[in-house]
Design a protein around this nucleic acid. Structure first.
Lengths: 249, 249
DNA sequence: ATTCCGGTTTGACCTGGATCAATTTCAGCG
DNA sequence: CGCTGAAATTGATCCAGGTCAAACCGGAAT
């Protein structure tokens, strides 16, 4: 399994943890693997490999082909592309349950996938994915549905970038984060901002300073409180929604 | 078949043209349907329905569910979303060969699909899609590959919007058009711009005037000539590429 | 504690593209 | 052929957000 470590770039702790991983998986109910038929699920659990990565660690690198089916189970990851001049663009954030790579053989990766927080992923080798495909008839259709969801995600993001002010974008991102990052061990009107300001800026096509000013404005307007730069308390959800929609300023 | 006309909105001429349509289809070689196995292809050809739409005509409307598999065979279409205030965003342009709707039963359409030029589409009813799915094992995988391509398209567009000037965006769009809109009956360094300036602006997240200035600048720099607003002659492809990349200004 | 350092915030200024307004071009048509 | 309305272009002004610079803050190491 040593070659895998190499191919998948540095993996933080040990991996191949396996064991009871699937039984305690937080997305086991909702995620893709839960919708496999019984036979497929048995095969999946028997062959899946659980990977761990530390925070801010590369997972997949552009230009390098890879053939694994990868599903994010814990943590937040970012999909980025960088230009020669160093400008970076965060194409998307991925959250637990997201299929991060569909494991097609031809696919060449033209972006970079990096962890934001510490992450865990489920991985299936190409041959095993193929075996699963043969053995479980609905397999490809499940992947197709997931792919369509990703298309919708991208379209929504594109939509959020069009004809919107910096404030609207920041507000919209917070609303998205709220539903996907229920802060562990915090009051339920609180949630974490797992990614740094630079990541947010590169995602919203803004400058770090502008993002910061956006947060400041939201605090000033009383929509949120910002006890720490990485922690948000939601004070007025309705207002935040209106600000995201551009209904108010 | 009258209900179909209603559900799919106004269809320009008569439809259900069928007949030899598949035999003369310009994308029959490259498109999705060509990669079906023999049995699947026979079923597909037997049941597919050919539709025609006039230019600037709605095809699919947001909020309305629909369950057809739709493939664009001729013409250019745009996928849009509009906000209450009237602001429109062109999420994507579709070209011949593109799968425009994957025909999933649950899917609710949250965008609008409209033709730019006159278009023809292949359509398969939900039940027939399901039948094809059962009868042709590779079917879902073909759709999955197409979906992944669309994801890549969206990511590329997102990337083109990040950290780029108006000029770069216009140049990049022209390069994209050149490969997808080989002008019929024109010199090979010429191609058509099928969509209006407003469509381009809403796609590149710019203003109509800014798009126009972009074209003017490209002409001024000698990268292109613009004999008509809808027709481009490529004078210096390398320069255009550099301008799109931001290497030159 | 103190220093250090990367991430964040705030301030002052400036520019690219939005906005508003006026003119030109072109396709369709009697 | 000239007329007409929509699309495209050009010009002039303005501002949201980019850019540059400095200050701030909090966690890790000493």
């Amino acid at each position: 399994m040593a070659h895998l470590r190499h191919e998948l770039a540095e993996i933080d702790g040990g991996f191949g943890a396996s064991g009871p991983a699937c039984d305690v998986c937080p997305v086991a109910e909702s995620a893709f693997c839960a919708r496999l038929d019984e036979r497929g699920q048995a095969y999946y659990r028997a062959h899946v490999c659980h990977l761990r990565f530390g925070r801010n660690t590369p997972v997949l690198t552009h230009g390098r082909p890879h053939h694994r089916l990868l599903i994010l189970t814990h943590g937040v990851a970012r999909l980025t592309r960088t230009i020669y001049n160093g400008c970076r663009q965060v194409l998307a954030f991925h959250y637990p349950g997201d299929i991060v790579s569909f494991g097609d053989y031809e696919t060449i990766w033209d972006a970079d996938l990096e962890t934001v927080t510490a992450c865990r992923l489920c991985s299936l080798e190409y041959e095993q994915t193929e075996a699963l495909r043969r053995r479980s008839p609905g397999f490809d259709h499940l992947l197709l549905v997931a792919a369509q969801q990703q298309i919708k995600q991208h379209q929504l993001h594109l939509f959020n970038l069009g004809r919107t002010t910096a404030l609207q974008r920041v507000a919209a991102l917070l609303l998205a984060l709220q539903s996907r990052c229920p802060a562990p061990g915090m009051a339920d009107d609180c949630f974490a901002i797992p990614m740094g300001r630079a990541d947010i800026a590169d995602h919203l096509i803004l400058q770090v300073e502008t993002v910061s000013r956006g947060f400041a404005k939201l605090v000033q307007l009383g929509a949120i409180a910002l006890p720490k730069p990485t922690k948000v308390r939601l004070l007025d959800r309705r207002l935040l929604q209106d600000l995201a929609d551009g209904t108010k300023t």
